[in-house]
């Protein structure tokens, strides 16, 4: 039995089935991501003054990834337009470009951005021990300037034993009295070779930059991880539509393939639109 309304429109809705299906699905996605964005915004508003991390993400890399996703939206719509004009060869190349953009985005995210965070370490110092680590925190100068105290020492975990952590310090803790360290650095500064020894009994909690580190990283990994899974899903669908199996559908019924590309293109645009909100929220603001 043939599935009806895959190409022609239903008389009652004026739409073919897959288009209604994708918009219903995207409506549910709006609720999913909307809930997560709301959670992020409320967590941020509720954070104590000066306690919400800022400038921990690599803005140039994030900007490049944003440009790649915008480019992929252009190529997918051109792939669809090529099918509408019955130019299969052009469709094939545009689809390949779209798949490549998705793969590059995921590679940058999973092989560069996330691992950089996993290598980073942060130790929150107990309030009563903050004075002991003044040379790494610079809180006396900050208090004079009316700024919130630093409570975390960050860097790369050099080594640890039962009593101590040895941390290769981030510049912010290596030169805490340098006024330029009062601001976030959107071009990340490399870890210094200055090593700090932190006693474990002075530490409230210590962890790598994982979701367990803070509400900020929990939100960051949840939202970018979920977004990444959507990108992966889109790439897999596009690969299917790029393979010879889809050429056979094109030869049988080109409009059917064009409709399939349109609904997957709608999904892809939605995923890219989510990133348009993720980028400024997490990287810039």
């Amino acid at each position: 039995m043939e599935i009806p309304y895959t190409i022609s429109t239903r008389p009652d809705t004026g739409l073919w089935n897959a288009k209604i299906g994708i918009w219903l699905f995207l409506a549910s996605e709006v609720m999913l991501f909307g809930g997560l964005f709301s959670a992020y915004i409320f967590l941020r508003i509720d954070a104590a003054p000066g306690m919400w991390p800022h400038g921990l993400l690599n803005v140039p890399v994030g900007t490049m990834n944003t440009a790649i996703l915008i480019l992929s939206s252009v190529t997918v719509v051109l792939a669809w337009a090529s099918l509408k004009m019955r130019r299969y060869r052009a469709y094939w190349w545009y689809m390949l470009a779209t798949i490549s953009c998705g793969v590059i985005f995921l590679t940058v995210k999973l092989a560069y951005e996330w691992p950089q965070k996993f290598e980073h370490f942060g130790a929150y110092i107990k309030p009563e021990a903050l004075g002991k680590y003044e040379k790494y925190l610079g809180n006396e100068r900050r208090a004079e300037k009316g700024m919130e105290p630093r409570i975390e020492i960050t860097g790369h975990l050099h080594s640890q034993n039962a009593k101590e952590y040895e941390v290769a310090l981030d510049p912010v803790n290596a030169e805490p009295d340098n006024p330029s360290m009062d601001r976030p650095h959107f071009f990340p500064l490399p870890v210094t070779d200055k090593i700090a020894t932190i006693e474990k009994e002075d530490v409230e909690r210590a962890t790598m930059f994982l979701p367990t580190h803070s509400a900020y990283f929990a939100s960051y990994f949840t939202i970018t991880g979920l977004h990444g899974m959507h990108v992966l899903g889109g790439v897999l669908v596009f690969i299917y539509m790029w393979l010879p199996v889809s050429k056979r559908l094109y030869q049988r019924n080109p409009e059917h393939l064009a409709n399939r590309v349109e609904v997957s293109g709608l999904f892809w645009h939605f995923v890219d639109l989510i990133w348009i909100f993720v980028f400024p929220l997490f990287y810039l603001l």
């Binding site: 900007t63 719509v77 293109g265 348009i276």
Partner: peptide, 24 residues
Amino acid sequence: MSLKAFHIVFIIFSTLLALGTGAW
């Protein structure tokens, strides 16, 4: 909404993002 219309909406949002990034 068709892909064509959604693409135009997406380009409008991308343009706003680019302008916002410039202001930032």
